[in-house]
Amino acid sequence: MSFLEIFKYTRQDSVIHRLDPRTKLLLSTVLGIISLLFLEIIPLLLIILFLLPLLGAAKSLGRWAKNIKGLAMLVLFIMVFNTLFSTDPTPFSRSVSLALRLLAMMTSFSFFFLTVHPDELSQALIKMHVKYEFALAVSMAMRYVPTLGQDAYAIMDAQKSRGVELDKGNLIKRIRNIVPIIVPLIVVAIRRALSISESMESRGFGASGGRTYMDMIQFRRKDWVIVTISLVGLILVLLLKFWWGLPSWMLWQLPF
């Protein structure tokens, strides 16, 4: 599951990291929408090619490249199944574009999660008039993903020492082997949630209505520029897709 790392914030100092989280949310969403609009190989490749320099500017290209390899199995799975079972006249071409779409979507959102600290995310949500409690819940959920990952490893270790062989046996046995992992994981998560809520309440969470914040996020000129470019880009792409039609070189398919 190492590809999940591409959704984990990394502390860096870069142009991208200094942008307002709302700008990045918009940019990621726009790119995600564009990836969903297309099932042709060339446009999807263009989206990915557009994303790579952005990741580079965020000094996260190496990290992304390293962890995206973990996606290889999933991509292979999508390709094999689609090629075998698709009713499309060119099944292989289609499965390649599906895999590319997945890659483009994941990269779009990894761009957001790699560069936005959970605290910034909750700030952004609050500025977008989401209730503080919900914003906190979202950022805490993000905060505890890696912790849950550590728990999962500890649980696997514990069960392996009791003779559970996680990577042996047929498919059914392997699926059954998930039970000894998943049940403790849920129990640990619930116990932790309870103790966090208790400790939050004992520190006066929700005691007073009006909150003030240590850090305030703020739109700067470059944020406005990027927001404008993103929105104009989205409109142009929508026009291209639904009004003007794609130029024929963009519709290119693999022959089988």
């Binding site: 649980i155 069960q159 020492s161 009791r162 559970v164 039970v179 129990v187």
Partner: peptide, 22 residues
């Protein structure tokens, strides 16, 4: 040797019981 094989000889008891009870 695999972990399962070694577990016949070596029993490890962990700090957090919640990591194994299911």
């Amino acid at each position: 040797k695999s972990v399962a094989e070694l577990s016949r000889i070596i029993g490890l008891v962990w700090q957090d019981p919640d990591h194994q009870l299911f």
